[in-house]
Amino acid sequence: MTFSPALEARFAKLLTIYPEGRQRSAVVPMLMYAQDEVGCVTRELVEEVARRCGVQPMQVDEVIGYYSMLHTKPLGKYHIQVCTNISCLLTGGEELYEHAKKTLGIGNKEVTPDGLFSLEEVECMGACSWAPAVEVNYDFHHHVTCEKLDRLIEDLRKLK
């Protein structure tokens, strides 16, 4: 598989930062960075990462099922993650999540037909004191309200 030069550079560095012979350590970081570029963890990516890290593809299969941020199906261009864990729950995270479902017309881990948005109800993401929180791809949004979420979605739609 070929990746962007930036990703290749990251991979190259990853293979050097762990102790000699411990390149298996790079499996999860490689998958994380690669899925952003590839869209999700494809079979091809599994084999590629296995090859580069010198592990069996099954050992990659073992981890992709384990880590909740590794996805084997493509997500939307904007992956909207709404936290409903305790601090967010107490401040309206659940209502926010229900609202997002309605606005986007999709359920948990589903993608809008245009592929623009996907939605996920997530566990605590470390924004409890500024709850309720939403993460879009890797960007945090704090003290989110239904109105703020609507505006955010509109802005993203315009951005395409």
């Binding site: 411990r22 390149q23 298996r24 350590s25 790079a26 499996v27 999860v28 998958l31 994380m32 890290c53 592990v55 050992q59 073992e62 981890v63 384990y66 880590y67 909740s68 941020m69 590794l70 566990e123």
Partner: peptide, 19 residues
Amino acid sequence: AGAYECGEETALLDSIEGK
């Protein structure tokens, strides 16, 4: 990559080893 259990110190060690 999204796993609360990896905060547990020994699970973190397995995780950093690529498991």
